[in-house]
Amino acid sequence: MTQPILQLENVHTYIEQYHILQGITFDVAENGFTVIVGRNGAGKTTTLRTIIGLWQAKSGTVKLRGQEIQGQATSEIARAGVAYVPENMGIFGDLSVRENMILAARRGKFDTDRLEWIFGLFPPIKKFWNLAAGNLSGGQKQMLAIARAIIEPSDLLLIDEPTKGIAPAIIEDMIDAFLELKRMQTTILLVEQNFSFAAALGDDVVVIDDGQVVHRGAMDTLSSNPDLQQQYLGLALNE
């Protein structure tokens, strides 16, 4: 059985007076693809931001390879091997695609083989290499955000809503890219509202509702059971 690379145990996170995460507990298997799904406002994004240290858990533990990381600065967690693609993508629109990638590369230098591998995953990165990132389409910006996160090898990749506002044709390309990442045994924890996209990729699934985990297990179990889908996701299933 694959050992978990990430473990959350009874995690509570507040944003000002609001109790957003209310005892979140789940594991992420190493070399696996785990998807967090749930209704809008359920606490999915807060979970990722708590893991990466942008928001601090008030109680509970977050462990990376058995070592507690809650309370650490985001920069420390990143150096420990966690990469993060936020929902807003976080690219620099005035800089070129190349300059955005340089900022993400260690010491500002690329591993040539790895860069060519990324070009294979996301051809628009190579095509628009010298174009200002702000001129890219929404889907191309998302590709750039993911490419920046994987320009250096990491132990765990956190990605928040990669298909939000993206055209269906780009979503199909993104599925192909993520399947390649899976084949390369990249450990991914993905927040996603598009259940069809999530089901096409996920090995394991965590359903969050009102700040609590209401279901966790194999993605196949949820994707093949309409009753469970209706119970936990409602009309969000086919959106």
Rank of each mutant, 00 (worst) to 15 (best):
T187V: 02
N194M: 15
I208K: 05
E30L: 01
D204C: 07
N31H: 11
S96L: 11
E30C: 08
G90H: 02
K63F: 09
E30P: 10
Q17A: 13
Q67P: 10
W55T: 15
G234L: 03
L228S: 03
V207W: 01
T61Y: 03
L189R: 05
I166C: 04
F122E: 13
I125Y: 14
Q229K: 10
V206Y: 02
F110V: 04
V213Q: 12
W129H: 13
I170Q: 12
A73M: 13
F92M: 08
N135C: 14
K63V: 05
G60C: 01
I170D: 14
D220T: 09
A78W: 01
R65N: 15
S196L: 00
N40D: 10
Q67S: 08
A199C: 10
R65F: 04
P86S: 00
T61S: 15
L190W: 05
T47C: 12
Q7A: 06
I77Y: 12
V85Y: 03
L103R: 05
G41A: 00
G139V: 00
R98G: 15
R65M: 11
I20Y: 07
A218P: 08
I175D: 06
A145F: 13
G90P: 04
T61F: 01
A104Q: 03
L157M: 03
F119K: 00
R39P: 09
A199M: 09
I146V: 11
L103W: 00
A200T: 09
Q231N: 09
P162W: 03
V11Y: 09
K182E: 13
Y84G: 12
